[in-house]
Design a binder for these strands. Structure first.
Lengths: 204, 204
DNA sequence: TAGATTGTTAATCGATTAACAATC
DNA sequence: TAGATTGTTAATCGATTAACAATC
């Protein structure tokens, strides 16, 4: 299979959401309909979906259930990804209990913090563990993704700990760039950056 | 001034962070040094910075403090943006008290929720208000940005309420697409999508 | 002056869109 | 068959990179 561009992967998650909210009385959708729902050009919809192989039927459209299944297969959502979270502050515990992860193929395996005042407390289903338990827990749960939800000053330490525990995919919510060795993928979500972009395009 | 591309605006926020963590014993940086710190091609750094006008000095580089000031000016960070948050659940209160907003030009004006069990409670500095107080509060605080941090099922209602209150820029954390009239800008941050992209690129 | 580094042009790359033959 | 819609090619658009003259 061709390497699928990152932009297409992101749109797959959008298509999936649109397909799930489709009316129940239809079994097929056209690229035109998907376009209307998702705000993506219909030609681009078809091009994206062509990465799945020829799953559409000319003159008819795409089978909704089949298409959703194909996308889930490509996105590996049949696999349940286990996630560890570093940082049990407000953001960390919001993420630990984020209902949007359920049904999207992710589950939180464990939550860690270095603050002795927080370690041992419970944030819903998870007892906060000390960071030196990380490596063991990653192995035990087969966790593949780590989330950094600690203050900026501790983000690099958190990244180092995750890398040391064998994690290769990191989602970083701290508002700093962290250094990781080659072969480790970091994706950064900076909440203030999101607001700044919005503010820039603010109609004055 | 040329319309600055969105990608450049996002990188501006990265440059700003890099400049702020620069060593204190130097007053200038080259595009090459910025490139090293931020992981952006040096030619692209120069091209981005050229949008600010000619702020560099050939053979020398860019004045750190001056450059940071220029970027802040373009990003409108001298202006203090007031933000209203809809949804005082875990994510909403994490955002309401997110320390990363301070010093980036944003402050939370008020937090709203429809759940009578939550209205009136305090999440740090903010007393949670009922949503029907939104319009009044937006006017009172001059809020320009709204954040949707409610469950997916209530996201469209939240968007409608924000639009009704005159908000033109919305940051949507709910895992659904919301409909808004033309002239209103919505930026979506979907935490599960971030994880999915990461999972897709997971080295197997 | 010699060395360094910008600002900018031209080349490259990749992603989006338009168009349309294939075909259900 | 006639109408609809895919899959795909070619055209377009925009963003990134390389290269280098300008100049501090």
């Amino acid at each position: 299979m061709d390497r699928i561009p990152r932009a297409t992967i992101e749109r797959f998650t959008v298509y999936l959401q649109c397909l799930r909210t489709a009316e129940r009385d239809t079994t097929t959708v056209s690229s035109e309909q998907i376009s209307g729902k998702c705000g993506v050009n219909p030609a681009l919809v078809r091009k994206d979906l062509a990465y799945l192989g020829s799953k559409g039927v000319r003159g008819v459209g795409y089978d909704i259930a089949g298409l959703a299944g194909e996308i889930e297969k490509v996105l590996n959502l049949q696999h349940e990804w286990r996630v560890v979270i570093l940082g049990a502050g407000r953001l960390g515990s919001a993420l630990a209990n984020y209902p949007g992860f359920v049904g999207r193929g992710f589950s939180v395996a464990a939550v860690f913090d270095n603050d002795p005042a927080i370690v041992g407390t419970r944030t819903d289903g998870h007892v906060v563990q000390p960071v030196d338990r990380l490596q063991e827990a990653v192995a035990e749960h087969g966790a593949a993704i780590g989330v950094i939800a600690v203050p900026a000053a501790n983000a690099q330490d958190a990244a180092d700990a995750l890398v040391g525990a064998g994690i290769k995919s990191i989602l970083n919510f701290a508002p700093v760039l962290v250094d990781v060795p080659a072969g480790v993928e970091v994706r950064r979500v900076d909440l203030a950056t999101e607001l700044q972009v919005l503010a820039y395009y603010q109609p004055t």
